[in-house]
Design a protein around this nucleic acid. Sequence first.
DNA 1: AAATATTTTTAGGTTTGTCTAAATTTTAAT
DNA 2: ATTAAAATTTAGACAAACCTAAAAATATTT
Lengths: 219, 219
Amino acid sequence: MNFSISEENYIKGIYHLQQETGSVNTNALAAHLHTKAASVTDMLKKLSAKKLLHYKPYKAFTLNEKGTKAALAIVRRHRLWEYFLVEKLGFDWDKVHAIAEELEHVSSDELITRLGNYLGNPQTDPHGDPIPDSEGNLPVIAQVNLAALPLNKQLKVSAVSDQSPAMLEMMNHYGISIGSRIKVSRHFAFDGSLEIIINKQTCIISGQVAKNIFVHYDK
Amino acid sequence: MNFSISEENYIKGIYHLQQETGSVNTNALAAHLHTKAASVTDMLKKLSAKKLLHYKPYKAFTLNEKGTKAALAIVRRHRLWEYFLVEKLGFDWDKVHAIAEELEHVSSDELITRLGNYLGNPQTDPHGDPIPDSEGNLPVIAQVNLAALPLNKQLKVSAVSDQSPAMLEMMNHYGISIGSRIKVSRHFAFDGSLEIIINKQTCIISGQVAKNIFVHYDK
DNA sequence: AAATATTTTTAGGTTTGTCTAAATTTTAAT
DNA sequence: ATTAAAATTTAGACAAACCTAAAAATATTT
């Protein structure tokens, strides 16, 4: 099945929102794609006619198996390109999203197969997000949310769930990136904020930020 | 200035036809782009409004300076991607055109700058065509006379100095034209005639003919 | 130079993806 | 259980890029 760029963007948007909330509603998708609810409804009808969705008018919707497979193919392309941009072209990891957003729509299976091989078929992209294989299988990467962790263990940042420019800018400011080694030294119950140690420096991050940072135990 | 994918395809099409014939007419461009004359006229009005063309209704047209600059940027992107696909991903050189056709529309100056550096800013693409630099300057590819060349190298015909009907007729007869890929398999010292391989066929050309054919190394 | 053929443009219509505004359905509140 | 609010869909338009068919301009023949 072949999709237009717009269709692909909707499929991917549904996939990502689904990851967070289980199912997706029209307004949320419209906000996510910076478009209007009416446009979303139009596209839902199209994707539904192509049998990619579980969709009943006025109800929340999800990708069916076919739709999920399509989404994973797009996610794979996006993340492989991000990996390429960072590892081969030397882009900063917080600046590759927009470009990968364009590259992901180039539709050639052989291109993606070769690109994957060229890059050594990595398991995660520069943000720590897992890269589906060509069959659509997501590698399982054991990771835990920073907000709910014992103190004073050596941790390694493995992913950041909110990849908005604002979040990435904040990460940058704190000097936190994928692979950073950090330790939680205090937990403030009042507002959920954490005192963490990174690069031998102590700083405080809000509970909101912490919720978006995923880690695994280091060494 | 930012262009749609369609606009870019028209600009590039005009550029290429211009290279061959000096100026371009509506039907030729329509054929080249597999579209219809009426569609071409529509786009000519759009590109003309954007001040990229020398265009008077019913007359042949050419890119002006601004249009040529735009075209060269697109050609640069296309050829850098072709180089990448062949040299890094291992594609056969005759299978990369369609994919590069898609990649060339990804619009990020930084991407192209970094890609160029990563590839070592090559001067020619895998077809032997010159790659414009970021300023739109086309490198002059060293052309060598066919009569004075090592054997068994893959060569590409880049120019013919004597364009008399007699010479052209002979070229035609041998199936040689600009862009033809040839290989010199033997050199007869006695009269300077050459045995060459073109389209997998072996033939002999005189030293006189060879002197009028210019080539560059192909890859 | 007039008639014919070719080329190009105009006129009007289609598709995709978008929008606003109004109508409908669902959800929440009284 | 009504009513009010929110979410969603429908209706009708618009822009980009394409099309066919007819009209206009240019080129070619006779």
